[in-house]
Design a protein around this nucleic acid. Sequence first.
DNA 1: GTCTATACAATGATAGAC
DNA 2: GTCTATCATTGTATAGAC
Lengths: 192, 192
Amino acid sequence: MGRWEPDTRGRLLHAALELFADQGYDATTAAQIAERAGLTKTTLFRHFADKREVLFQGQPALVAVAIAGVESAPEGATALDLLRAGLLALCEAHVPEQQEIGRQIDRLIAASPELKERAIFKRSAIAAALETTLATRLGDRRLAGVLADLGVRAYYEGFSLWSDTRRDDKLADVVADELAAYESVLPQVTGR
Amino acid sequence: MGRWEPDTRGRLLHAALELFADQGYDATTAAQIAERAGLTKTTLFRHFADKREVLFQGQPALVAVAIAGVESAPEGATALDLLRAGLLALCEAHVPEQQEIGRQIDRLIAASPELKERAIFKRSAIAAALETTLATRLGDRRLAGVLADLGVRAYYEGFSLWSDTRRDDKLADVVADELAAYESVLPQVTGR
DNA sequence: GTCTATACAATGATAGAC
DNA sequence: GTCTATCATTGTATAGAC
């Protein structure tokens, strides 16, 4: 289907994961990643704005999925229903293989402040997108913001539990449990 | 009190703000900032890990203040009392001049993805610190996390309101109002 | 203990050829 | 879409001056 090997971005991700596992993130140059994928540094930076984005290339699609999930919720849905619809869509976008890749990436993030900063930026991008959609549906910016924070927290905490201690459960269930735990703790905030 | 001009970091911040206002963040080099402050690039990087940190140098102190605020709350304080104590301390650490500097920095952040990423990282650092302290006092990680998100949101939204439309009010009051608004909206999340 | 001089590796941008 | 080549800038490292 063309003069070059297909799936350039995927090949770059794969090459990066191997090299980072061997040498660490900092000790690996963009040129090395490109070379292992059979490309040059210039080409890598044509596909990704920076070295970090090679690892986070999956996130934008997740955001779109979450938004679509909220938007496809039925008309009479409650605030919490909308949030759950978004999270469910998000979770179902994960294929089982991503559990292992996710673990790998999480380890790299934990070891690199540079990656941690980008990871938090991505997390906040999901929250912001969720907030916007929820605000449209609910007509209440504050409620939307609070809900988005809650949902994103449930998603990240859930993902972490899922890949650490609940590997055989479905991600959607773990996240739903986490969200339910927040619900049951909220009355303590309001003052009972 | 020494052989050199005092307040090196403050001078660098001042120089950076002037140059960024003139030329924008991207078009200003670290060397230019240093030169305007009467220093060299080497010295700038001795004081700050990177160019962005010149702008965010105030944040670490704010984190310490917020934590101290929570820790100094009386023994019988409720979860919400603890959060309010932290936020109050945070707000009172702001001197009036910081309203204008804060506005300036916010404009720069809005115009630069690079700065936005760092700003979000700083926000999350405040949330994480708050969460840790609250968890210690409350003995409940989940509650602490949810509370920290809520508090940090109130602080940032409050700051934004304060510098945009409520300049003459006290920051602490604006933030307290914002937090109260979240409290009143929370029952809608629990499901009434 | 803070600053400077110099040299250096890596990022990321850019222009032009295939 | 990729490559070669070149480039400015970031940020580091070293060794020394006051």
